[in-house]
Write a protein that binds this DNA or RNA. Structure first.
Length: 837
RNA sequence: GCGAGAGUGGCGGAAUUGGCAGACGCGCCAGACUUAGGAUCUGGUGCCCUGCGGCGUGGGGGUUCGAGUCCCCCCUCUCGCACCA
């Protein structure tokens, strides 16, 4: 009984575990995916975003790497020299949290995770060249991150400046914007405040215009990502105008995109942090109250201040400006809705034509003056207006400009501003410089030394790396252990040899990930970050694949790096990623998988139960890559069943027919064989197009399933099988399957008696003549409704098709006694007969 | 609010240029094989109707011989941005 059952099981399913592990071992021994620069072959660089080693892979990773592996394997079969590397974005805060909470060193936590996740990736059978593996936390890597920092430094692209930053009072540390959730620290939920601190910045704003304009060159990027970057850079053109301050020689500079509304400016608003504030409020009787107000606003923090329902609050400074166009004295207010970080930190308020200004004006009873009339001519009533008129129109109440279309008036006013020397046209970007300082331990040390004599001194290149000391202990406060690690802090000045102090901040981990794709080109170089030859051979990345959550930060920083490195002559190509695919999320029960929701699916469990090929196939089949994917256990079963079906088909036919011929089959011996042959060739065509043109792996797999169904029909019904057609069909089937189910394909390739790896074979070709059949089915419609079908010769003329259609009894029924209006014939597709009453 | 994307059977999804809506898979139903079937193979399966046939791609209108696909209006959902002057 037991024996029989085992035998039955063996007859219907294959031992995926044995098959997969066997081939993984063989591929590894043969170093099948190892690549070298080979000028004789076209190169293809396929890259998936390297993961943070958080512990174990999640389904999003499995999806990301399955997609990438199809591309890599397909391109390899297409004859490309494919670089497909993997590494670890290994610095970051979770490692420190683990250290604090579980008393594990970030280093051992990270390396343990890497070991585990590498093993998972290998078990999935992803075709990486593992010899190129890098980890950004390894000194061999971060040494070159530091070196690049110094190149940026020399190029004047690094600066240290005071800046308002998010500060968590409980954790005693600065937080990145992305670590602030709803105005609170993501770790301890304490409300975040703003602090002015000396911080290191990359001057990415110098590249704002190029980062923006060169988005147009990125034809292979999704519009969504380009739009997000465009918005993030936030270019706006306007005019900076000086408003003289009454009783001071100083003028208040404002930036406006609506200089045409200057006659409607009835007050000014400056940011609480504005440097002129102390002088402006010096003589105010409310000075103490104003200072209290400013303190309140600052405590609020930038996040809370920018929140949707934030009230617009302000106080009058007691000082006045003169509107240079009207000559009027207008009051200067301090307002929480004006941000120091944008423009000049001061605005001219035009309440009639700006909703924010109108809200503020209504709250504090400030005057409203309409200066733009809508095209309808209905002048808004300044006294009752509740919705500002922000559209274009004709200028009114605007002195000599009255009557002009506002767009024209804007230019003329800008001209006048420049002529009178009270300002100039200006381009303003929302993009801010990239703050790279982090008060954290587990990051790349910033290679800077502070000397009392020489000031800020970069560490000389030959002294790199500045090694992160591992012998440190972690405090529950979260304060970096580097700060009170004397062996690290105390050093000598590289310039004068005197005592000096090391920078204890480390770099934002986005710096590490801004150049890893270059290191993959030359990962073991001990004398340089990379050599230009190798980078020039492999770069740019032909296909980059990852989650859309990196649409702005990582993908913009990487573009910035590549531009700078191209400017410095270190690389040739100015763009890092030629084509970008942003995959959708993996959902369960309609929601993103997360531990807190308890709806995660463990990749290890799936691989153990069904194997890697099943896991990969299901993920690729369930949804096209860009779309979200709904996880389904039943769907996984389906994928598993399909692979077993393929296995049975190939093994059964191989057993039944004995040794099979190789190569193309001539026309089939009978109609059934010929039909099978047609399906085979049609499937090759379809799968090729789906992969090549659209990355629609779900429909490619569906086509292979149809082929397998057709094969079963033939297998079950053909009395005498056409060996040549079957052999050719099985061969192509296995080749088509190779990128999707690499282990099973390899196994079956050998079942078919082939020696070399299936993954070294050329992609199958199809015979265009074999794809076409001699007859085609024509749909026959009457007044757009399908009434019948018709088989005609492929070459049938329009007239023949038309006559045949009109002669059909069912057509006659529906046209009898009615006037024939028109007959539309779409060759090879349909006939539509239009009849009147 | 602004920007982007999506809405198709019981479910995941397909329909590449305006030309058979629902490929393929899941689920369900039936048959075959079987001591047995939660294995396998085969067939069926959008909805309504006994049938002829009618209806059907979020809703409403339009263009067209013909619309899931193009145009206009509206609704819902997802994502991104959000006082950017």
């Amino acid at each position: 009984m037991q024996m029989e059952r085992t035998a039955t099981v063996r007859a219907t399913t294959y031992d995926f575990d044995a098959v997969e592990q066997k081939w993984q071992r063989v591929w590894d021994e043969q170093q099948l995916y190892r690549v070298y620069e080979d000028p004789s072959k076209p190169k293809y660089y396929c890259l998936e975003m390297f993961p943070y080693p958080s512990g174990k892979l999640h389904m999003g990773h499995v999806r990301n790497y399955s997609i990438g592996d199809v591309v890599a394997r397909y391109k390899r079969m297409r004859g490309f020299n494919v670089l497909h590397p993997m590494g670890w974005d290994a610095f970051g805060l979770p490692a420190e949290n683990a250290a604090i909470q579980h008393n594990i060193h970030p280093s051992s936590w990270t390396w343990d995770n890497i070991d585990y996740m590498r093993q998972q990736l290998k078990r999935l059978g992803i075709s990486y060249d593992w010899s190129r593996e890098v980890a950004s936390c390894h000194p061999d890597y971060y040494r070159w991150t530091q070196w690049l920092f110094l190149q940026f430094y020399k190029a004047g692209l690094v600066e240290k400046k005071r800046a308002p930053v998010n500060w968590c009072p409980k954790c005693q540390t600065v937080l990145a914007n992305e670590q602030v959730v709803d105005g609170c620290c993501e770790r301890c939920d304490t409300p975040v405040t703003v602090r002015d601190l000396e911080q290191w910045f990359f001057r990415i704003t110098r590249y704002a215009e190029r980062l923006l304009s060169e988005l147009d060159e990125l034809q292979g990027w999704p519009d969504k990502v380009k739009i997000m970057q465009r918005n993030w850079i936030g270019k706006s053109t306007g005019v900076e105008i000086q408003f003289p301050i009454k009783g001071m020689d100083e003028a208040l500079a404002v930036f406006t995109t609506r200089a045409d509304t200057i006659y409607g400016a009835t007050y000014m608003v400056i940011a609480p942090e504005h440097p002129l504030v102390p002088r402006l409020i010096a003589d105010s009787p409310d000075r103490a109250a104003i200072e209290r107000f400013i303190e309140d606003v600052r405590r609020q923090g930038e996040i809370a201040r920018a929140a949707e329902d934030a009230e617009k609050l302000g106080m009058f400074t007691g000082s006045y400006c003169v509107n240079p166009f009207t000559g009027e004295e207008i009051p200067i207010w301090i307002g929480n809705y004006v941000l120091m970080g944008y423009g000049t930190g001061a605005i001219m308020a035009v309440p009639a034509h700006d909703q924010r200004d109108l809200d503020f004006a209504r709250r504090y009873g400030l005057p409203v003056r309409v200066v733009i009339a809508p095209p309808s001519g209905d002048l808004p009533d300044a006294a009752t207006l509740t919705v500002a008129y922000a559209e274009d129109g004709t200028m009114v109440n605007s002195g000599p400009y009255t009557g002009l279309p506002n767009r024209e008036g804007l230019e003329r006013i800008a001209d006048e501003v420049e002529r009178r020397g009270i300002g100039r046209r200006r381009v303003q970007y929302r993009l801010r410089d990239w703050l790279i300082s982090r008060q954290r331990y587990w990051g790349c040390p910033i290679p800077i030394v502070y000397c009392d004599h020489c000031g800020t001194v970069p560490v000389p290149e030959e002294q790199l790396p500045v090694v992160l000391p591992e012998d440190v202990s972690f405090k529950p406060t979260g304060q970096s252990p580097l700060v009170d690690k004397p062996e690290f802090v105390h050093t000598t000045c590289p310039q004068c040899g005197g005592p000096a102090r090391r920078e204890t901040d480390t770099m934002d981990t986005f710096v590490d990930s801004s150049w890893y794709f270059l290191r993959f080109c030359d990962p073991h170089n001990t004398g340089a970050a990379f050599t230009k030859d190798k980078v020039d051979y492999w770069m740019p990345v032909d296909q980059y694949i990852g989650g859309v959550e990196h649409a702005i930060l990582h993908l913009m920083y990487a573009r910035f790096f590549q531009m700078v490195l191209a400017d410095l002559g270190l690389v040739t190509t100015p763009r890092p990623f030629e084509r970008l695919l942003t995959q959708g999320m993996v959902l369960k029960d309609g929601a993103k998988m997360s531990k807190s929701k308890g709806n995660t699916v463990d990749p290890d469990h799936i691989v153990r139960t069904y194997g890697a090929d099943t896991a990969r196939l299901f993920i690729l089949f369930a949804s096209p890559p860009e779309r979200d994917l709904e996880w389904s256990d039943a769907g996984v079963e389906g994928a598993y069943r399909f692979l077993n079906r393929v296995w049975r088909l190939v093994t059964d036919l191989a057993n039944e027919l004995g040794p099979l011929p190789q190569g193309p089959a001539p026309a089939g011996r009978d109609a059934a064989a010929e039909e099978l042959r047609r399906v085979v060739h049609r499937t090759v065509k379809k799968v090729t197009q789906d992969i090549e043109d659209r990355f629609h792996f779900n429909t490619a797999i569906a086509a292979v399933m149809e082929l397998v169904n057709a094969f079963y029909q033939y297998k079950e019904s053909a009395t005498e099988k056409d060996k040549a057609v079957v052999a050719e069909g099985l061969e192509k089937l296995v080749l088509l399957l190779a990128p999707f189910a690499p282990h099973l394909a390899e196994e079956l390739w050998h079942t078919l008696g082939r020696g070399e790896s299936v993954h070294l074979q050329p992609w199958p070709s199809y015979d265009p003549a074999a794809v076409e059949s001699d007859t085609v089915e024509i749909v026959v419609q009457v007044n757009g409704r399908v009434r019948d079908r018709l088989w005609v010769a492929r070459e049938a003329s329009e007239a023949e098709v038309r006559e045949a259609a009109l002669a059909l009894p069912k057509v006659q029924e529906h046209t009898a006694g009615r006037r024939l209006v028109r007959v539309v014939v779409v060759p090879g597709r349909l006939v539509n007969i239009v009849v009147g009453q």
